[in-house]
């Protein structure tokens, strides 16, 4: 079963910059992979194509069997509900509590407050932040903020979890902790793709690597190792 498929995908930004060209790869359902490359190699662009934050100039992207090129603008929100995203700058809202931040996707998807409450607490528990519900994210440390972002990305039980430099601002110990969190989600069936340039950490963790170099993709090895690092 394929979760993500890129078929000869190219992306050229207005102005002529070729961000991606000839991208072909597949992610199996439940797979865990890293996306690496120098900064400006096109990692963020590739992730954005899966969320339809960008549309490809050429080729086709499939997510969960859906051809994203065929989606009408009105269908995009429903795609995004199936895909959880974590950002380096975590994109939290500081005008509301941790709880409300995590509950946002559920509120949008139309869950009742009671159901949302259960799921928010489960998600916060899974990232080790139960008990911080009422705090404002601005009071939390960088690592804790990132975990709130992860809780928000997984609270809707997405089939696919994307992360763009989720450990970019964290020290090595916290980074490893965050990566282990992602592994836990993969173990319960979520497909995970993490863009990162933390080569040392990635090499220690093993797993498949997709390497981007100036817009071209080299599918890396799928190492035999692949347990939880720590």
């Amino acid at each position: 079963m394929t979760m993500v498929q890129f078929d000869r995908v190219g992306k050229r930004y207005p102005g002529g910059k070729e961000a991606l060209s000839g991208i072909n790869f597949e992610l199996a359902r439940g797979e865990f992979a890293f996306l690496t490359g120098h900064s400006g190699a096109g990692k963020s662009t590739l992730l954005k194509l899966m969320m339809l934050m960008e549309r490809p100039s050429r080729g086709q992207v499939f997510v969960d069997g859906q051809n994203l090129g065929r989606l009408r603008p009105g269908q995009i929100p429903y795609l995004r509900r199936k895909v959880g995203v974590v950002f380096q700058n975590h994109q939290l809202l500081f005008d509301r509590s941790v709880y409300d931040n995590v509950a946002l996707p559920l509120q949008i998807a139309g869950y009742t407050p009671a159901e949302a409450g259960r799921r928010v607490r489960a998600a916060l528990d899974s990232v080790g932040l139960l008990g911080m519900e009422k705090r404002n994210p601005i009071e939390l440390s960088g690592g804790e903020q990132q975990r709130v972002g992860i809780a928000r990305a997984v609270v809707n039980k997405p089939a696919l979890l994307l992360a763009d430099e989720p450990t970019g601002n964290l020290d090595p110990e916290l980074s490893a902790e965050i990566m282990n969190l992602f592994l836990r989600f993969q173990q319960v069936g979520v497909t995970v793709l993490i863009a990162s340039h933390d080569i040392a950490l990635i090499e220690r963790m093993g797993h498949r690597r997709l390497i981007l170099d100036h817009g071209h993709l080299h599918d890396g090895q799928v190492p035999a190792a692949g347990g939880i690092y720590g």
Binding site: D64, R81, K82, A109, G110, Y111, T112, P113, E115, R119, A122, A123, D125, S126, G128, V154, N156, K157, P158, A159, N180, L181, R184, F185, V188, G189, V190
Partner: peptide, 30 residues
């Protein structure tokens, strides 16, 4: 760290159906 309590095995589509039309309508009104 404890095992995650919420299983992520159910797909998003299924979880939406789980909710039921009436509950969703109520949530919309809410």
């Amino acid at each position: 760290m404890a095992e995650p309590k919420h299983t992520v095995k159910t797909q998003a589509g299924a979880s939406l159906q789980e909710i039921g039309v009436r509950k969703r309508l109520n949530a919309w009104a809410a």
